[in-house]
Computed example of a mutant assay.
Amino acid sequence: MDDSTDDGVAQALYARMHSRGESLPEAAQSLGLTVEEIERARDQLTRLNLLNPGTQTAVNVAAALARTLQRSHRALDRLVEQHVRTAALAQHYLDLPRQAGGDAHVEFFPRADRARLNQRIDELAELSSHEVLGLQPPANWTRETLEAGLARTKVTLGNGVRVRALYAQISLSNPLIREYVGHWRQHGVEVRVAPVIPTRLLIYDRHTAIVQADPDDLEAGAVLISGASVVSSIAAIYDYCWMTASEPEDVPGSPDGSDLTDQQRAVLRLLATGAKDSAIARSLGVSTRTITRLVSELTAALGASSRFQAGVRAARLGWLD
């Protein structure tokens, strides 16, 4: 049934209700309307303010028109008010960072201002139009914080923005991080890992960056830097780190304490120092053949090309913590 037919049914129903004082169910029954016709007519009359939802009776056309005009006036008033606010924002606030310090603008968020920093991060993620880059050093993540980050990332990805994240290899020793790496990649986030991530960093559209204030203290606050001339240089450093990083599947997972024995940990520590099998065997009081077998197994598990590389890689992955 097309719109003109729906209009005709609604008009006939309203005319009967208005002229005979019948309720909508009564008029619909008298006209022999189907359930579908009744629902479409009810929706039509409700939109036109010609139906009292409570009593299901007709509303006078003049009263409905007055009510509709009143609502329109209120909507128009709100629109005009919004226009005035937008004009004031553009005129008085849009250029403040540029006026205050040329192309670059710096803002410090102390630890006590974490809520305001999180709000700023949410705003930047929502306003990004091209790319979001992240450096994430090891931290005490919880499922709640990771879920909040995933929700924010979904919004960014939904806007067609490319999202890249670099994590420290040692972070993959955390089963929770490995789980969420899977979630991020499933939703379209590009993830790579590197042996060392020196600090926490977020870059938005190569114009705004948020960097950890103190690389040695995650709780020391953060610094926001805006300005393409400055942030583009920071982004270039990020690009180099990204180019030299590894895909997560190329990094062996770290076993938990029940899988890695004390003897294996001791062997790996000595391997990292460059010790020979015979020296390791004497140190641990076992045969050289046993050490040779352990070294072979551990090197294969780590995907290392040499004994020394196996020890170094194990240290970077946190296997020796």
Rank of each mutant, 00 (worst) to 15 (best):
L51F: 06
E26F: 00
L45H: 03
A58E: 08
S296D: 13
E147V: 01
G160Y: 08
D277Q: 08
L201A: 13
R313E: 09
Y167Q: 08
R114W: 11
V312P: 00
W141K: 03
A64T: 08
Q264T: 01
L317E: 00
D321M: 04
L320I: 04
A10Y: 03
V286E: 12
A12E: 08
Y204G: 12
L13P: 15
A88H: 12
D256W: 06
A194E: 13
L166G: 15
R116F: 03
R40E: 04
D214W: 06
V161L: 10
R282V: 01
I197S: 10
P137W: 05
R116M: 05
A139C: 05
A236Y: 04
I291H: 03
A266S: 15
D262I: 08
V106G: 03
N49Q: 06
R47I: 07
I225R: 05
A168R: 03
S229F: 06
A115D: 15
G149P: 10
V211P: 09
L69Q: 02
L117W: 06
P255Q: 07
I291N: 01
V9A: 12
A220P: 10
T46Y: 08
E126T: 12
V312L: 01
M243K: 11
E297G: 13
G274T: 02
I121C: 14
V251I: 15
L31W: 02
Y240S: 14
L298A: 01
M17H: 11
D216A: 14
L270E: 15
A100Y: 11
A41I: 11
T261M: 02
T273G: 05
G54M: 03
R282F: 00
A63E: 07
A272G: 10
A194H: 15
T5Q: 11
S128N: 09
F108Q: 13
A115K: 14
A228S: 14
L157W: 13
L69D: 01
L317W: 00
Y240R: 15
I237H: 11
N49H: 07
A12V: 04
Q119L: 14
E37C: 04
G274M: 05
R289I: 09
R178Q: 11
A104D: 04
E37K: 04
I280N: 01
R67I: 00
G257P: 05
D7N: 15
G160Q: 10
N140I: 06
R269I: 10
G188M: 10
S229H: 10
T199D: 04
G158Y: 08
L224A: 04
W319V: 00
Y240H: 15
A301H: 01
L135P: 06
M243S: 12
L13S: 14
W319Y: 09
M17N: 08
G274S: 10
A104Q: 01
D205A: 07
A304L: 11
H207K: 11
E22I: 02
S129V: 00
D6W: 12
L218W: 07
L51H: 03
D205Y: 07
R116I: 02
S287H: 12
R289C: 04
L89W: 04
L172D: 05
G158F: 09
S226Y: 04
E107Q: 08
V80S: 00
G182P: 05
A139Q: 08
A58C: 10
R200V: 01
